[in-house]
Design a protein around this nucleic acid. Structure first.
Lengths: 329, 329
DNA sequence: CTGAAAGCGCTAACAT
DNA sequence: ATGTTAGCGCTTTCAG
């Protein structure tokens, strides 16, 4: 089923059919009708492969993220989709599974379809991947992080600064025996940066981490609960728990409530990301909004603008005290 | 940057370069080396658009789901990915946002790329969408549901049966004042089917729903909590709450625990889906595993087999009593 | 307003 | 083991 078939059925040239179907150029209403009818009757679906090759235009934007299981990424995708929905551009998602080599392959695959642009999560990539991004010839935006050296444009927050800001909020609220609960995966560069920023922030206040614990695998209530229990049994005098993500913090919160601890008096908790699904927990967890939707929107806008900028857009995460930290002293 | 450039740089024909890069046909080791080197030096990325047009082969599988925000769908994608990762096929995701017209557009867009197959969530589609799926000329599998009339192949569970089975479990445990808490969206056909199956199941046991409540918008702890509170204030003598999804059930559970209710003695709760992130709640919610990973895997296997079957694979959901229902009488 | 010709970058099929 | 030719189904460009 090709343009030819529709053209024959409508008694016009392929070119006319092409014009009608793409709504380009002047076609008489009569011809237009006939073509639409023929196309519909035949159930014609245009071949974008051929169209793309001929026009050298592919209205796809590649989006490379680590995973779909961690809710942060669907949230970014949501922001991207919200902007692209009003344009001819369509996002195509690829996942790296937090693996540099896989990410490189995914980027290569994406670029082989000659998309109109590329959005990639994070700033840490293989050299080959960076080279491909540099030479893509289309807008490339790295998202979620601005602590590093972007290949081209970047939109995100400073995770270092976010960690540091959290330290200062906690210290200002009079907590001093502070534990960190995070991921042991080096692959999560952004969590690492928050961790380092957090420690630097404590250090500036003359404090240091009282204890820390790391886990393998996915974040979740069970993980958060388990980590929290292990840490508190090991170091019994902690007065604050800072988690790498709200999902784990939620598990920790439930554990502390079960133990009958006084939150936020006896012990405070904070996470990161600000997940909407968690509204409805017994207490609102203190957190920092990672501005995922905004990041997606801004990145998509750069795709739509179709400029090869090296602009770095730094968004500021917002601290949300919730109910699990004391009021400021 | 085309094959031509690489061919010139390596001093061979385009065809030889094509052979080397696709690893097809016999090429001497010496030539092979030279070609790889030239390609690498130039940073050549093949043009799949041209390749696909020439070979009439596109190693993409379209996957159409309602959304990425509801965790059930990423779970299905995970199953699909697990199988396709060992093949040349790649999933391409499109979202319908629970909108029939949008779904139709997405399917149209997907088919216009001439994918090797199509996986679509659900059995309810526009007539035009069904026609496209029927005439796609490639394997088409509808997933997650088998209660209805599939266009071609289908892999899923019977949501009707799942609802009915849940009713029978609840009744067998001696509950009788039962409330249903679900979504008001007609778009969630599967939840509707569970609801109907559930009522039918109660009816067979000589019972009926004591009350029911429906919400708009996304599921989540806040939604579950709010619905639960509203329902229980309205009908104070309920002894069981059946939710359309575990996310809402979790919110309800937290609410009931806060109120100091005796679970599962005074009141029982059950949800649907079996979400791993919820392990770690104070109690494990009774639920029914919707076998999302399995469904994804099986559907992907049908894509790999590349047969145009009309096979219907019905998987059986498993009841997981958790801690929120009494033992069987 | 409509059509004819050329060609996008690659691969199938057929030489050699 | 390597090269040549034709053409995939469209769109661009130029004519009329």
């Amino acid at each position: 089923m090709t343009l030819r078939d529709v053209a024959d059925a409508a008694g016009v040239s392929e070119m006319t059919v092409s014009r009608v179907l793409r709504n380009r150029g002047d076609v008489s209403d009569r011809t237009r009708e006939r073509v639409f009818e023929a196309a519909r009757a035949l159930g014609y679906v245009p071949n974008k492969i051929a169209g793309a090759l001929a026009s050298n235009r592919v209205n796809l934007v590649g989006v490379v993220i680590p995973s779909l299981s961690n809710m942060v990424f669907p949230d970014v995708l949501h922001g991207i989709g919200a902007v692209l929905d009003d344009t001819p551009l369509q996002p195509v998602i690829g996942t790296s599974k937090y693996d540099r080599d896989r990410e490189e392959k995914v980027i290569y695959e994406m670029l082989s379809w000659r998309p109109s642009g590329l959005i990639v999560a994070g700033l840490e990539h293989s050299e080959a991947a960076r080279a491909m991004m540099r030479n893509a010839g289309v807008p490339v935006v790295e998202v979620m992080d601005v602590d590093g050296d972007p290949v081209a444009a970047a939109v995100g927050i400073s995770h270092q600064a976010a960690g540091r800001a959290m330290a200062s909020e906690i210290v200002a609220r009079g907590y001093s025996r502070i534990g960190y609960l995070g991921s042991s995966s080096i692959a999560d560069a952004r969590a690492q940066k928050r961790y380092r920023g957090f420690k630097a922030g404590l250090s500036e206040a003359g404090l240091e981490l009282a204890d820390e614990i790391f886990y393998d695998g996915a974040s979740g209530f069970g993980t958060g609960r388990g980590m929290t229990q292990a840490l508190m049994e090991r170091t019994s005098d902690l007065d604050f728990l800072y988690y790498n993500t709200d999902m784990n913090a939620a598990g920790g919160l439930l554990y502390c409530l079960e133990k009958g601890l006084d939150i936020p008096g006896e012990i405070g908790l904070a996470g990161f990301n600000s997940f909407e699904v968690l509204d409805g927990l017994p207490m609102r967890i203190a957190t920092m909004d990672s501005r995922r939707d905004q990041i997606g929107r801004k990145a998509a806008e750069l795709m739509v603008a179709n400029e090869l900028t090296t602009e770095v857009v730094r968004l500021e995460p917002e601290f949300l005290p919730g109910d699990t930290v004391r009021a400021k002293a």
